[in-house]
Design a protein around this nucleic acid. Structure first.
Lengths: 191, 191
DNA sequence: ACCAAAAATCCTTTATATTGGAATATTTCG
DNA sequence: CGAAATATTCCAATATAAAGGATTTTTGGT
């Protein structure tokens, strides 16, 4: 076989960088991926040449595509050092007075489609009914005030103050205000 | 190791498809890549699980990027259809009673490093002082109650209820409770 | 500085990726 | 159809990926 120790070694460094960014220990990554800590250690140090299957397990555990795991990292452009402020009055909102819903769009515009977050408010008896988003999308709802009833697919669940629900958003889904007071919640959508 | 024979088998089929499109025999591909015919045959039939180094050699021989070789398999694995609930009582928290800070970790564990989000509470006069995160990280802070004073690098800014601040988090930064009541805020960290 | 806990590395054993060549199957062409 | 040429699969031997436990190193608190 041709010599490729160089590229194998680079892969190891890249893997280690990703793991450290996620603040995972070898043990934790081992648990999630099913790959032994010793193997992980050897891979990171370029002393082992992982199989495709092992890389697959690792990419799944790290929440990455295979291609992200194997591609060379491109230098991200410089980011403005100043603090950007979005005043409450300027915060874009989506209101549906019909159903008593208000969504304050809190995320930056340049991340739409990947990761969006909202402060959600629903009046008593109101409901936020949503069509399926793109394949693989998930929503994470944390109740800040009141109570919510979440339906995703054929399942329904009740969430109280402080509770978080995580569910598929690539099927029809709905959030209902389940109490006598308005529901306030944090809604995170990950594509 | 977790079972991944299914995906390994798919890789084999994909490789064979590419080879036939290029009208190469096992022998020819073997010559160009340095991988033995027998190994190629086994890989294509899903009877072997090639190493990263072998895949690298193959991708070079086929004139493909590594990511192109594996791009068929980028879509994320099956995601549970059931709603996952994290009760308020079970929500992991980071407390620093010294500085009157509490962070409720709301994001799922498998996204650490990419996106993390928290509900942040700081008592009057309290402060959350943070060391730099990894290069390129930004934080997004939305005030839910009270008022905050955010410092990032050499800049400081005041945020009131409903305001959102976005700033570099790869430099030393701090969030201070700027009012007489406790600060409650949503903190999103993007790596 | 010390100690205890956690994390990473090292060591041994097992499973298997990889090879070269022999055997089989497939295609080509008279 | 049959033989030669080519392509693929099977087999035995070797190198090494992978796992599990033991040891060393690092980390964090007092």
């Amino acid at each position: 076989m041709k010599d490729n120790s160089e590229i194998v070694s680079l892969l190891g460094k890249h893997l280690q960088q990703i793991r450290k960014e996620k603040k995972l220990t070898l043990e934790q990554l081992s648990q999630k991926s099913g790959v032994s800590r010793s193997m992980l250690s050897q891979i990171e140090r370029g002393q082992a040449n992982p199989t495709f299957g092992t890389l697959w397990n690792l990419s799944r555990a790290l929440g990455l595509d295979m291609s992200e795991l194997v591609e060379e990292f491109e230098s991200s452009g410089p980011i403005s050092g100043k603090i950007d402020v979005l005043l409450a009055a300027d915060t874009p909102r989506i209101s549906n007075t019909q159903n008593g819903c208000t969504l304050a769009i809190l995320g930056p515009h340049d991340q739409v489609g990947q990761f969006e977050w909202y402060e959600l408010q629903i009046e008593p008896d109101g409901i936020l009914d949503s069509q399926p988003h793109t394949q693989g999308t998930r929503e994470h709802l944390t109740v800040l005030q009141g109570a919510a009833e979440v339906t995703s697919g054929d399942q329904t669940i009740q969430l109280n103050v402080g509770d978080t629900g995580r569910y598929k958003a690539d099927v029809p889904h709905a959030i209902r205000c389940a109490g006598k007071v308005a529901l306030k919640a944090l809604l995170v959508v990950m594509g």
